[in-house]
Structure formats: structure tokens, C-alpha cells
Design a protein around this nucleic acid. Structure first.
Length: 521
RNA sequence: UCCUCGGUAGCUCAGCGGUAGAGCAGUGGACUGUUAAUCCAUUGGUCAUAGGUUCAAAUCCUAUCCGGGGAGCCA
């Protein structure tokens, strides 16, 4: 362990700085730390600076007595997000988040930041998105990005540990893989080309060469969707396994998701705390998942099948009356607080907090009003659900509402699924596809299934879906030369991260989201 | 593409026919343990854009642009 940290810091000390995440190992010692000023609070002769360095956070105390008049004046001129280097002593202080603070004895300023646009207060989404490059520095975004990183690491660890080979599918493609969704069109020299919306077909080819593979790459969808569940550019993980059935795939998906959840719970405790994630709820998904056929899911949706003695429709009715009670309660509280705020006599800070609470209550009020409007619509749509169609967002909510673990729905109507899905033996109107619906309303995170192996059925399907046969000849070759049962699935990385973090919008789960009308920054 | 809500100070918002407002940020000052620190003072405006109604428009009407939420579609 290094003991000779200089009192006076300078450029020369760069490499000697201790990462803030490792401060605990240096209690009582003199250390050098560096980072950005996340917050500063001043008093006469005393300045408190919360430093962040990407690895963690720490409050640093700067006093005029310790630093001298000159250096102290410099410290008080530091705007938010200025970059600095401090030398000081690590002491325990139970009042701080990590239980530690640093008493600074000298400082070196890299850069003084002026007028940092993101203030220490609530901001609107639009403004934050315009400043995404700076927003990423905030604590909440720090936590989300660290969970995302952990999820990525956990995914590689899981598949590599099970003998899967990572492969990269092309991003330029000449044809639509599934032909269903909108593709981004671009140019490949003098030919029309599209940005990949799935690497699956290439994954199948590679699985026939390597056995078990997984892709991990960007995916592009030109859908003009503006919802909290959609991105136009997102990252997808698509494993593909030779000699695999649908049933084996269900087991694999469950093992896989539980492994990722387990690793996030283990390694991201602080991050989840920052995000105020209900980890007990998340932990429930370590229990076995619910497995339903499409037929069973429809019966549950329509209230014809009970789960634990309850019907989905009854639960919804309950939710509706709870929402109504909640709204009444919220309205009362709101009126009370507004009267308090109006009465005056409150200190500025207390008033600000009260106003923030009022804003929160108003948001809750809007949410409840929306639920009260929505639930009857959902009930109606669930009761009238037509067998054979796909589930809409509200139907997913109704089904997942009944469980605290993910629900895997399999054996889907052939007509609503992709052309490459394998028929169920003895029920040719069904295919061996699976959708995994995350709990707590996070919706579809995984889609997959067993692939058709019979070349004639595949050709029929291609014709039926009106896809250009000649562009699929290479794919058909996989069935001409040693066709075997195989299966795979796709996981939407951002949807998974959103779920695990318990956040509201998909757009916060990726550093620079690409959405309709947002190409910058 | 459709439905819906919105655009007022750098930021968050109030004002909804009669002189453009508050809080935060910024700036100047006070305070030796702050946790969105607090207190005093102070700067800051083409009310998205273009038309229209009116004695008078941020406010009412029409169109356009931009953004939020949702539907469809999906990971």
C-alpha cells in the first residue's frame, strides 16, 4: 500500500489518485483523489464539496484554516462540474452516504466550469434529453448505466459459461428478415440496403456451424412509435442453439434471466438503492416462472380461468376501486397541502419541499385518473379479446398483473407469428413460439421459439408471407444440408435494464437513445 | 398514421381578455458542519411561429412547427 502521498498535488500525482469506490480501504490515511464537483455548499470559512469520479461519490470538507485564504477562495469559486484534484485525509462520518468524508489539505484545479446547465432541481424530460451528454453525469443516470454494464457482463458470463460462442451478425442487410416491421433504408454502393432488425437468420447459419451461438448487437426499427417501451435503435441479444427444442428453450430463458437478475442483485446493491428499486419484488423473479400456452393465457385474460382462486377481471375491478379510493385520498391530501402553502409563514426551503410534494401528488393524481380511465377499457378489451389475435399492451398488463414472476406464453397462432416458426405437432394452426412478459407492467422482454426444419413447410410459409423466395435461398440451404431441430430467442437489452432498474422510460436505459425526432446529441 | 396533453426568463412553472409573475440558477453580500443548506439584495422576456377576432390578445379562433403520453407494431 502506498503511504507517501504528497500533501501538495499536481499533475505529477495523476496516477496516484485513489478511486472513490476504494476510499474505505484508506480510512485515517492521507490520499489523493480526483473528479468533478457534483455539489458545493458554503459557510463562512467552510466549504462542502461532493466529489464524483465515476466510481463513486464522497463529500469533501474544505476549511479556510486548513487551506489558507488563497486556496480557499479558489475552492469557493468552483462551479458545479468543475474538475479538481484534492489531497486530504479520509475520516469516518456516519452522516455521509458512504459513511466517509475527506478533509482536504490541498487542491489542484483542472478546470473551472461555469453555469453548468443542469441545476440541482427537477427538470423536464425535453431539456434533459437535449443535454443527455451532461445528464449522464447525474447520480440516477450513473446508477442506470452501471446496472446496464452489469447486465451486459452477466449476459456474456452466462453464455460463455455454457459454451456459447459470441458472433456478430451483419448490420447491412439486403432483405427484410421477417418482413413485418419498418426498416431503415440506406445505400450499399449502388444497391438498396436496410439496417438490420434482427441477426437471427444469420445466427441460425452460425449455429449450424458452431453449435450454440449468441449475437450481441444493435438493432434498427423504423417504427414510428412514441411510447416508453420503444427505441428506434436498441441492442439485442439473440442466442441460437442447434439440437434444441422449445421446451429446452423455455428452461434456458428462465436460467438465463435468473442468472442476470442474480448478478445484478449481487453486484449493484448501491445502484439499485440510488434508483429506489424494490429489490424484494425483483428477487421474486428468482422463483420458477409461470408457463402458459396461448390458449391458457387467453382464458386467463377473458376471466375464464382462475389463478389462485382469482380471475383477472376481478383483480382489475379491485384495482379500479383501489384507484378510486387512492384518488379521493390524493385529492384530500393535495387540498390540504395547497392550503398550507397558501397560508404562508413557511421558510423557503420548507415551502420548496412542500411544493415538490404537491407536484408529486399532482403526478400521482394524473396517474390515478389515467388508471380510472384505462381499466374499464382494458376490461372491455380483455372480455372481447378475439382468439387468434396478438396481445396488446393492455392485455399483457392484465395477464402479468396476476403474477410477480415473468410469464412465458408459448404455442401461438401461426398466422400472427414469423414465417420461420415451427408448427406444433398435431395442431398445425399453432407454432412453437414463446414470448416472455416481465412482471410489474414491463411487458415483453424476450421473444423466441423453435424454428421450422422442414424445407417444404418453410417454402410454403415464405410464399404465404409474400416474401421474395430467391433472397432466402441461402437460408433454405440450412434445411438442405443437415437440417436439425434448433431454437433461439431474442432479448431486448434496454427493456431488460428498464425492468431491473424499475425505471419508467426505456430511453434512460441507453446512453444516447435514438427515438423519433431525436438524433442529437 | 391516429387520439390526447403541452410550448411564457437559463431551468421548473403560475397567469387564461385589461401594465409580464414566482421559485431555482446567475451576480453581490452575510453565516465555521452543510445534505436541493439558509438569509438579504439584484440581473434577466419577440409569452413557439404566421394569420385572424377585439378598443385591448400570453389569454379567444385558424393553420403550421416542435415536444410529452398513448394506440397500432414490436425487443
Amino acid at each position: 500500500m502506498k503511504t507517501e502521498i504528497p500533501d501538495k498535488v499536481a499533475t505529477a500525482a495523476l496516477g496516484q489518485a485513489v478511486s472513490l469506490s476504494h476510499l474505505r480501504q484508506h480510512i485515517g490515511q492521507q490520499v489523493c483523489i480526483q473528479g468533478w464537483v457534483q455539489n458545493r455548499r458554503d459557510s463562512k470559512g467552510l466549504s462542502f464539496i461532493v466529489l464524483r469520479d465515476g466510481s463513486g461519490f464522497c463529500q469533501c470538507v474544505l476549511s479556510e484554516g486548513e487551506l489558507g485564504e488563497n486556496a480557499f477562495a479558489q475552492a469557493q469559486a468552483l462551479g458545479l462540474e468543475s474538475s479538481v484534484q484534492f489531497a486530504g485525509r479520509v475520516v469516518e462520518d456516519p452522516r455521509q452516504l458512504g459513511g466517509l468524508e475527506v478533509q482536504v489539505s490541498s487542491l489542484h484545479i483542472w478546470h473551472i466550469a461555469e453555469d453548468y446547465p443542469i441545476a440541482k432541481k427537477a427538470h423536464g424530460v425535453d431539456f434533459l434529453m437535449d443535454n443527455r451528454h451532461l445528464w449522464l453525469r447525474s447520480k440516477r443516470q450513473w446508477a442506470i448505466m452501471r446496472v446496464r454494464n452489469q447486465v451486459i457482463y452477466a449476459i456474456h458470463r452466462f453464455f460463455q459459461g455454457r459454451g456459447f460462442m459470441q458472433m456478430d451478425a451483419p448490420i447491412f442487410t439486403g432483405n427484410a428478415c421477417e418482413g413485418t416491421t419498418d426498416l431503415f433504408e440506406t445505400e450499399f454502393f449502388d444497391q438498396k440496403a436496410y439496417l438490420s432488425q434482427s441477426g437471427q437468420l444469420y445466427g441460425e447459419a452460425m449455429a449450424m456451424a458452431m453449435g450454440k451461438i449468441y449475437t450481441f448487437g444493435p438493432t434498427f426499427r423504423a417504427e414510428k412509435s412514441k411510447t416508453r417501451r420503444h427505441l428506434n435503435e436498441f441492442w439485442m441479444i439473440e442466442p441460437e442453439m442447434a439440437f434444441y427444442s422449445l421446451e429446452m428453450t423455455l428452461d434456458l430463458i428462465e436460467d438465463f434471466l435468473q442468472s442476470v437478475i442474480g448478478q445484478v442483485l449481487e453486484h449493484c446493491a448501491l445502484e439499485l438503492e440510488v434508483l429506489e428499486r424494490d429489490t424484494d419484488m425483483l428477487r421474486k423473479s428468482l422463483q420458477p416462472f409461470v408457463r402458459f400456452t396461448y390458449d391458457e393465457a387467453v382464458a386467463v385474460l377473458k376471466g375464464q380461468k382462475e389463478v389462485d382462486g382469482k380471475k383477472a377481471t376481478d383483480l382489475l375491478e379491485e384495482d379500479l376501486s383501489k384507484a378510486r379510493d387512492g384518488l379521493r385520498e390524493t385529492n384530500e391530501k393535495l387540498a390540504d397541502m395547497e392550503a398550507q402553502a397558501k397560508k404562508g409563514g413557511l421558510k423557503k426551503g420548507a415551502l420548496a419541499r412542500l411544493e415538490k410534494e404537491i407536484q408529486d401528488l399532482k403526478t400521482r393524481q394524473r396517474d390515478l385518473e389515467e388508471s380510472i380511465r384505462n381499466i374499464p377499457v382494458w376490461l372491455e378489451s380483455a372480455r372481447n379479446f378475439e382468439y387468434g389475435s396478438d396481445f396488446g399492451g393492455s392485455d399483457e398488463t392484465v395477464i402479468t398483473r396476476m403474477f410477480s414472476v415473468p410469464v412465458m406464453v408459448y404455442h401461438w397462432p401461426k398466422v400472427i407469428k414469423a414465417f420461420y416458426m415451427k408448427e406444433v405437432e398435431g395442431a398445425p394452426h399453432l407454432v412453437k413460439g414463446v414470448d416472455v412478459l416481465a412482471p410489474e407492467g414491463y411487458g415483453e422482454v424476450v421473444g423466441g421459439g423453435e424454428r421450422e426444419t422442414d424445407i417444404d413447410k418453410l417454402k410454403d410459409s415464405i410464399i404465404h408471407h409474400q416474401l421474395p423466395m430467391n433472397e432466402f435461398e441461402w437460408y433454405l440451404d440450412l434445411r438442405r444440408y443437415g437440417s436439425v431441430p434448433h431454437a433461439g430467442f431474442g432479448l431486448g437489452l434496454e427493456r431488460c435494464v428498464t425492468w431491473l432498474c424499475g425505471i419508467h422510460h426505456l430511453r434512460e436505459a441507453i446512453p444516447f437513445p435514438r427515438l423519433m425526432g431525436r438524433l442529437f446529441p
